[in-house]
């Protein structure tokens, strides 16, 4: 009962926090480029405006996919807040990712279809890394559950430093940050129009924006698990990681999928392999 309550609170609060984080992201990015940037609540203005726009679609299936993306993203955050199984959380967020891709595929427009294929490649790149990170956490706690992490008396970061780096790789892709923003950029610039987002418009795009906020919270939640022993540590680690993501986003250019897959699999597997061997050797 308590976990259900936590899940509902998480699902209610996450979009608010996620939207604010996105706003902060835009301000910090603007400051990095010596601009002033939009107001903090700009993401909410954007989403509300989109929600109020005329409904247009090319294929009704897009609406189905947009809703499923949002529901899956919200459910994964709910499961995280309920302290559920990490692999389950990961699989449920994959439901959202798959439906986003299917929604982009639903319209025969070259931009959204190329975006969809690139999104699939991004999934191929980050999914194994997240699974391996979860396996690392399992080896530390003896359980796949989130609440087991909070039972530890020492931050995970000390034992899983390389896996934390690996998770950082995966999160850069998930947050749509350079150099991995190849399917759709978090900001409004992209060589393939808006990639997977191209064909969603009005309220459907609003749903997708909100789903992205949920995903931001999910990602930050995963990061916070690495310093689960104190609240201050969690906040500090999350802030530092997110700041690093923004910095990487601003100092690097967009790369190709080939480079992404090669570098991410190679470095990710080597780093997580080394870290996992340490754990097995214990």
């Amino acid at each position: 009962m308590k976990s259900l309550f936590l899940a509902l609170i998480g699902m209610a609060v996450a979009p608010v926090v996620g939207g604010l984080v996105s706003g902060l992201d835009r301000i910090l990015t603007a400051r990095c480029q010596s601009r002033k940037g939009p107001p903090l609540i700009q993401p909410f203005y954007d989403a509300a405006k989109l929600w109020g726009k005329e409904v247009t679609a090319t294929n009704p299936w897009q609406a189905f996919c947009a809703v499923m993306y949002l529901v899956a993203a919200a459910a994964s955050v709910g499961l995280l807040c309920a302290g559920s199984d990490l692999l389950l959380i990961f699989f449920v967020q994959a439901v959202g990712a798959v439906f986003l891709v299917m929604g982009a595929y639903a319209v025969p427009s070259p931009y959204s279809q190329i975006g969809a294929q690139r999104e699939l490649l991004q999934m191929v790149a980050y999914e194994p890394l997240i699974i391996l990170t979860i396996v690392g956490i399992r080896l530390m706690t003896g359980s796949f559950r989130v609440d087991a992490v909070f039972a530890l008396d020492q931050p995970l970061l000390f034992k899983l430093p390389l896996l934390f780096l690996v998770l950082g790789y995966a999160l850069t892709i998930k947050l749509r940050k350079s150099p991995f923003d190849i399917s759709a950029c978090h900001h409004a610039h992209q060589e393939i129009v808006r990639g997977v987002y191209t064909e969603f418009s009005g309220p459907y795009l609003a749903l997708i924006e909100i789903a992205h906020w949920y995903e931001v919270i999910l990602v930050l939640g995963l990061v916070s698990l690495f310093w689960a022993t104190s609240i201050a540590g969690m906040i500090l680690l999350v802030a530092a990681t997110y700041a690093a993501e923004i910095l990487v986003d601003n100092v690097s250019s967009r790369m190709t999928w080939r480079w992404m897959l090669g570098s991410v699999w190679l470095s990710g597997l080597v780093l997580s392999g080394i870290n996992l061997v340490w754990l097995y050797a214990r």
Binding site: N59, A94, V98, P108, Q113, A116, L121, M123
Partner: peptide, 15 residues
């Protein structure tokens, strides 16, 4: 996941 989602996606690709 990638090769299945690709197939399912384009079956619904209609305008």
């Amino acid at each position: 996941v990638a090769y299945w989602a690709r197939w399912a996606g384009q079956i619904m690709s209609v305008s």
